[in-house]
Design a protein around this nucleic acid. Sequence first.
DNA 1: CGATGCCTTGAGTGAATTCAACGCTTGTGG
DNA 2: CCACAAGCGTTGAATTCACTCAAGGCATCG
Lengths: 255, 255
Amino acid sequence: MERRRNGNGIGGKWHTPCTQCPLRALPHFRDFNAKELDFVAHFKSGELSVDRGSTFLVEGTHSPHIYTVLNGWAFRCKFLSDGRRQILNYVLPGDLVGLQGGLLGAMDHSVEALSPLTLCVFERSKLDRLFERHASLAYDLTWIAAREERILDEHLLSIGRRSAIERTAYLLSYIEQKARQVHMLTVNRPVIPVTQQHVADTLGLSLVHTNKTLRKLADRRLIKWLDRGCEVLASDDLRRLAQWEGLPEMQRPFI
Amino acid sequence: MERRRNGNGIGGKWHTPCTQCPLRALPHFRDFNAKELDFVAHFKSGELSVDRGSTFLVEGTHSPHIYTVLNGWAFRCKFLSDGRRQILNYVLPGDLVGLQGGLLGAMDHSVEALSPLTLCVFERSKLDRLFERHASLAYDLTWIAAREERILDEHLLSIGRRSAIERTAYLLSYIEQKARQVHMLTVNRPVIPVTQQHVADTLGLSLVHTNKTLRKLADRRLIKWLDRGCEVLASDDLRRLAQWEGLPEMQRPFI
DNA sequence: CGATGCCTTGAGTGAATTCAACGCTTGTGG
DNA sequence: CCACAAGCGTTGAATTCACTCAAGGCATCG
């Protein structure tokens, strides 16, 4: 499996004011009211752009920032001390990362960009003020944490109890749904930008066996594998194969 | 593996006023200030006692309550539609359950008692008031959710990337530490009340293979297996075998 | 005293891993 | 412009790990 290494390539600049946040335009997200928007605009201290392959949050470090993804793909992962890697979840626009580190102290996982990535930067130090003055956003924050927990529950069920082909079907159908919700998969850009190594490290399988399992799904015309990417052809069939209910279709908050 | 079934045995009565909550006496937990205590006492609407084997929160249902464990052992779990079970985490005194359901709607997992269990009952409907009026408790709630997420990350790493013997070592050392923090393991009562079926369903292994793996650990004098239970003899050795860092020793909030 | 729940063990099978090699594309430095 | 390395995907073969099947033992409980 993929072993720990280090990549960087971080640059920062300010672009998007919160009032014109492209995420607010997505029907998938709950919009802010004026008071909330005012606070969030104040909470945001800047923007960060990172390259593909860059690990912008590192396990064991203490970050003064929390981030919301504005654009691009990333993943959270964790390593054993001998280098074995487990990918925990994928991160897309609207997702918050670094909250664990922000609340509990040091990061216990890393976050790496799968594509060029733009992030909103929030100051950890202003979190207290959020809880003091903006109950609705505090509620949202808890909601977001509970939602991530729920997804990890499903991942755990998947790795623990689904067969290799079911797991793979679950994962691809999950990513496809999640990405579609935030318009990161379109007719022009239908590809999930992962390697088979990423899939293997998410599913707890070896690279070789992942390759053979993906081939089975491709032979059944459920997916198409491209260079550095996967196109899902039949999301519903994958979902059924995995005995998975799918993501709820409710609107969700973001920060 | 264990298949879905149903058990019950639920009775309710009121015993412990929050002012005399035994959890507050534990050094492991952050205590409340007067204002917080006042609210929590008001938030708590009663107590619930359930028998061993009783599933008091059921996947798919919508519970009007959130619970904190006062005494006893339990676990959270999830099922595939064909009945395969995955145990997600273990629940001990001071742990909050049902928050996911409370915030997001229906429960997406079940919670079952491993021993006779006493629970504090909170009204989901009073959650809004908590966020409105008690920022510090709102913060704690988010903190608690982030902590659970962190633990699930570690479980995921464990099932995904650790070998059978490492996984087993991790699990038993994890439960031992967690239980010891809340004084649920003592010289008089050193036994974790699980069957090998529970261990298997937590680790994503078959019952037979779990049995053989536990035997290896027992042969190495790291654990002792009893009827319906496990005694950890060498927690640190297990932890090292699993390449696990262990739980942080910080005080934590509870509600 | 038969039923049930839990633990144990051996044998045979199947699934997933490791090892090894090769092809293709992309990028880079000579 | 070519040679070469690096990253990614693919495939076959051998091995190991984990699963299923089958059976039996030992408590506890009605």
